[in-house]
Design a protein around this nucleic acid. Structure first.
Lengths: 203, 203
DNA sequence: AAAAATATCCCCTTTTTTAGGGATTGGCAT
DNA sequence: ATGCCAATCCCTAAAAAAGGGGATATTTTT
């Protein structure tokens, strides 16, 4: 029997998952936490085989919690749970050691399959997620730290000159970064750059 | 017994709701639809007392579906279901005749309470939702249709001149709208306007 | 240690936005 | 019917961004 900890703040979703595992024969829910803090508390007493970790928690984001959990227990198997809009997070979760990623709109079968695969030491990605990641790698969207910094400031309404002052660089440099961003994201100008960046979760 | 139709594309959430109503004594689920189209199909044969309508459906957005349903049957009671990030939508749903709004992270008690209230002809808003709306009205963020249109085009990277051409207006007019938007949202310039607009769900 | 990626800085011209304004129509609501 | 507000259009000068380059350090990665 695979033991599971559900970390998820939506009672409805928790109910749905519980039901699903009660009906299955190989996994059981040994704990439920509705927040990052609750998750920490539970983990002091319970060591589940797999943690189903929602990305959107009230007190902490999924990635940070994932990092934290794995720091304390590097072998912990974590399966990320999320809605579709957060593909950018998927990469980060997997990079930080999550063993899989499941969309909340996937079928019960898929979810149970994911649990099994992860328990056996594999990695699992929902079908749709794999597509999303493929798209992502096709786009080859790689933004540097500096560019992200500039992006943030641009989104806050600063001009090249103002950004330059803040970062102690030349306005021309700030402008170069901006232009590079526009090229990389295939935007038409700064406003559309901001939109695309926000859609991709870069801001 | 109150009859319910669940319109929701996440199987987990559907399970959770089903469970909740099975355990209750006064409401029962008479249908489930995972898309706008499925919802239309179901409604041809089933007339539920209340429709629980998710805002995020794969084929149509909740507001449009809400409008459509109410056009065909103005007395239909609709309870909107959503996550927290979509406050902006709440207003619109209620304006278009939804009878209430429930957050997916509210407790089963709240949800059942909402069902009861709506069935008795009242309106129901999750506690947190009411707060959100109050905040909103404090902000007094009122955007006209035209402004929203301009906003969208700006976010797609069109210049005043291009927008003017698309909408058959003068570039000066397009610019006026843009300036008004910047003032209304208290932005510094167009890029920051886009960011704020996206955060507030205007785009 | 060499290669690749990143960050930095520069130039020029044209287009676009910004920051102030102000003014007129047409529709909807009271 | 009258008043409000949305939508429309206009002006000017200054500032900023777009579009097109190119070049040199400085990290990182291999």
């Amino acid at each position: 029997m695979i033991s599971l900890l559900i970390v998820e703040d939506h009672p409805i979703v928790v109910e749905g998952l519980q039901k699903m595992f009660r009906d299955s024969s190989f996994a059981e829910v040994v704990g439920v936490a509705g927040s990052g803090q609750a998750c920490r508390d539970v983990l002091r007493w319970i060591k589940p085989d797999i943690i189903l970790l929602d990305i959107n928690l009230p007190d902490i984001n999924g990635i940070d919690l994932c990092i934290e959990i794995l720091k304390n227990n590097p072998k912990q198997k974590i399966l990320a749970l999320s809605t579709f809009d957060e593909r950018h997070v998927i990469r980060q979760m997997l990079d930080h050691g999550a063993k899989g990623y499941i969309l909340k709109n996937s079928s019960p079968e898929e979810i149970l399959e994911g649990i099994k695969v992860v328990q056996e030491g594999g990695k699992y990605l929902s079908a749709e997620t794999e597509e999303a990641l493929r798209d992502k790698s096709k786009n080859e969207l790689v933004i540097t730290r500096r560019e992200r910094e500039i992006l943030k400031l641009l989104s806050e309404g600063f001009t090249n000159a103002e950004i330059a002052e803040k970062l102690f660089i030349s306005p021309l440099t700030a402008d170069s970064h901006r232009k590079n961003l526009i090229t990389k994201l295939n935007a038409r100008n700064t406003p559309s750059l901001i939109k695309l960046a926000m859609e991709k979760g870069l801001i």
